[in-house]
Design a binder for these strands. Structure first.
Length: 255
DNA sequence: ATGGTAGATCGTCTA
């Protein structure tokens, strides 16, 4: 089973990219972030024609998440239980015998800002939720745009992206480590120890051409799934396509 | 030098 995460930065714009990538990559489950679509505008009919069922939770202009799957998803959860949030950043569902949690983590703007405080509170709420979720679902995949680069191998310039910078700050990385301590494993790092493998490149400063990126899109697998994770990767070629998302799909394959 | 680009929306916010 191939499970992927992709921040599409507007599904309205990126639907042709998604269709092309679904055809070539042929994932079984996909978590999308930044769909930027109200639910009545979600292209579920077109995706069904390609063999994918959709569950989604969106809003216009900002945020928006979805889970696509070849077999129907059940027990759909919208948002973090008990955490009031107008921003549509979370959807979870069960596909077959695997629980999928799809997160569009708060960006945080800059260290010390109100949005940064919101990011840390939000991550704490996710931690509390996943602590329960892992007990209910030993086969757990937590994926999404984490807006945190796990370590220095995951940034093009560790001097710039340091422990006081947004997306790499000490508190953000500590929050991510706390999630991993629940018994989750970075699927990509089970198969690749190299530095310089990124999933996001800023649109500015020709960042992709210069490989000035970060790896912030993650697929985490639970203890029980770890021995079943046979491959992982990032489909960076999508970033070379015309009018691309600034993120590339990150995926794992489970036996 | 507080820039640059993209998306949604149409002046300005978010990333």
């Amino acid at each position: 089973m191939k499970i992927a995460s992709w921040n599409v930065n507007s599904l309205n714009v990126r639907m042709p990219h998604l269709e092309q990538w679904l055809s070539s990559a042929s994932p079984d489950v996909v978590g999308l972030q930044e769909t930027k679509l109200a639910d009545d505008r979600f292209p579920d009919t077109a995706l069904a024609a390609m063999g994918y069922r959709s569950v989604f939770c969106g809003q216009k202009t900002y945020n928006g998440v979805a889970i696509l799957s070849r077999t129907p998803a059940t027990d759909v959860q919208f948002g973090i239980p008990g955490f009031e949030d107008e921003q549509k950043r979370v959807i979870a569902a069960t596909v077959g015998d695997t629980r999928i949690v799809n997160l569009y983590v708060v960006n945080g703007q800059s260290v010390g800002s109100d949005k940064y405080a919101y990011k840390l509170r939000w991550l704490e709420a996710v931690h509390g939720w996943l602590e329960a979720e892992r007990q209910l679902h030993p086969r757990l995949v937590v994926l999404g745009d984490f807006n945190i680069a796990p370590d220095d191998r995951d940034v093009h310039d560790p001097v710039v992206w340091n422990d006081e910078h947004i997306l790499t700050s000490a508190a953000e990385r500590a929050a991510l480590r706390r999630l991993l301590m629940l018994g989750l494993h970075d699927g990509f790092r089970l198969h690749n120890e190299e530095a310089g493998e990124f999933s996001w490149w800023d649109y500015r400063q020709a960042a992709f051409r210069r490989n000035m990126g970060l790896r912030i899109d993650l697929t985490l697998v639970s203890d029980a799934l770890r021995p079943l994770c046979r491959a992982a990767g990032i489909d960076r070629e999508t970033r070379t396509w015309e009018r691309p998302s600034d993120h590339a799909p990150a995926w794992v394959e489970l036996d």
